Simulated scan of single mutants.
Amino acid sequence: MEPTIKKSDFVQSLEKGLKVIAAFDAENDKMTLTEVSKKVDLTRANARRILLTLQYLGFVQTEDGKQFSLSPKVLTLGYSYLSALPFQELAKPYLRTLADEVNESCSMSVLDGYDIVYVARVQTNRIMTISLGVGTRLPVYATSMGRVLLAGLPDGEMKEFLRGVKAEQLTPNTITDSEKLIERVQLVKERGWALADQELEIGVRSIACPIKDKYGKTISALNISGHASRVSKDEMLEKFLPHLKSTVAQIENAIHKSV
């Protein structure tokens, strides 16, 4: 759910600065002042002040004074959050072992707004058109990890959340109807796992389970993903799910011992 804030407490200049940083991506890794102002819907004067401030702070760089790009210092913004996650470093060895066992890519994510955010990943085969890694964001409604994370919410919160999602038809298999999505997530609550079959991208299948803290609260999701031409739905359930559950149990045990 979207948080609320009083107008007097809202810092608009901070919002604009963060929007400028978020405007840079794989397709727009370098932009001119004009391009930034159009993409973020700012005046040229506003965009210029923000870019120059970010450059002064070391988050933006330019070689010719015309095209701007993010600097490596931007990584510190996300690293502070990632380094504070108690389970991230603990889970990495288990992810590597799982990926070796099933010979498929394995990932871990957390919920952030209407997206899942990757906090760990071991890639064995590239199966998506986009490159996935730590920090990648994907829509919660079309992913197995997203549904596992939503299943960890209280019923009322989950339903309100999904009724507020603006789901796009990413593939012919994508479920966009909020009530059908609610049914799917409720089924995940009962089963303890989620299977997404080519809903995010044609050719991509994945299966996920929740990772819970010692109080039973879902804190993350772990998945195995494979290409549909190589891995059937039956294989996901019969071959991969037992390995996935076993790995989750090991990670949870390690987390419980560390706190």
Rank of each mutant, 00 (worst) to 15 (best):
S8A: 13
L181G: 04
A23I: 02
H256C: 03
S144R: 10
M128T: 15
T129S: 13
S178H: 13
S71V: 14
Q88G: 12
Y56T: 13
K7R: 14
E168Y: 07
I127C: 07
K73E: 12
R121Y: 12
V122S: 06
S206T: 11
T43D: 08
V185P: 05
G133M: 00
F59I: 06
S258K: 10
T124C: 10
I116P: 00
L98F: 01
I224Q: 04
I207T: 06
E238A: 09
V20R: 03
T124D: 11
N46F: 00
L237G: 01
K19F: 06
K245M: 14
L170Q: 06
L241A: 06
K212Y: 03
E104G: 10
I207W: 08
P3N: 07
F87G: 06
A142W: 03
L90H: 04
K180S: 14
Q169D: 11
K257P: 02
P72F: 09
R191E: 14
L150E: 06
R49M: 08
E27R: 11
I202M: 15
K159V: 13
E238W: 02
V259K: 03
V20Q: 01
F59G: 02
G113W: 12
A120S: 13
A45D: 11
E183M: 15
V148P: 01
R126Q: 11
A151L: 06
A228P: 02
F68E: 03
P172M: 00
V248H: 01
Y56L: 07
P3I: 10
F59H: 07
S178P: 14
A167P: 01
G135Y: 09
I207C: 12
A99M: 01
R121T: 15
M145H: 01
K66Y: 11
M158Y: 07
Y114C: 02
L54E: 01
F161Y: 15
F24W: 05
K233S: 07
L33M: 14
F68Y: 15
V102N: 02
V231I: 15
M236K: 01
R137E: 10
A91E: 01
H227Q: 07
L42T: 02
V122F: 07
A45M: 11
R137H: 13
A151C: 09
V40A: 07
L162G: 01
E63M: 08
R137N: 10
K39W: 03
L75W: 10
S229C: 07
N46R: 13
R147Y: 00
T143P: 00
G192R: 04
T136H: 14
A22T: 05
G226L: 04
L90N: 02
S178T: 06
L132H: 09
R121M: 15
M1L: 11
S109P: 03
V231P: 01
S105A: 14
A196V: 06
K233M: 05
Q67E: 12
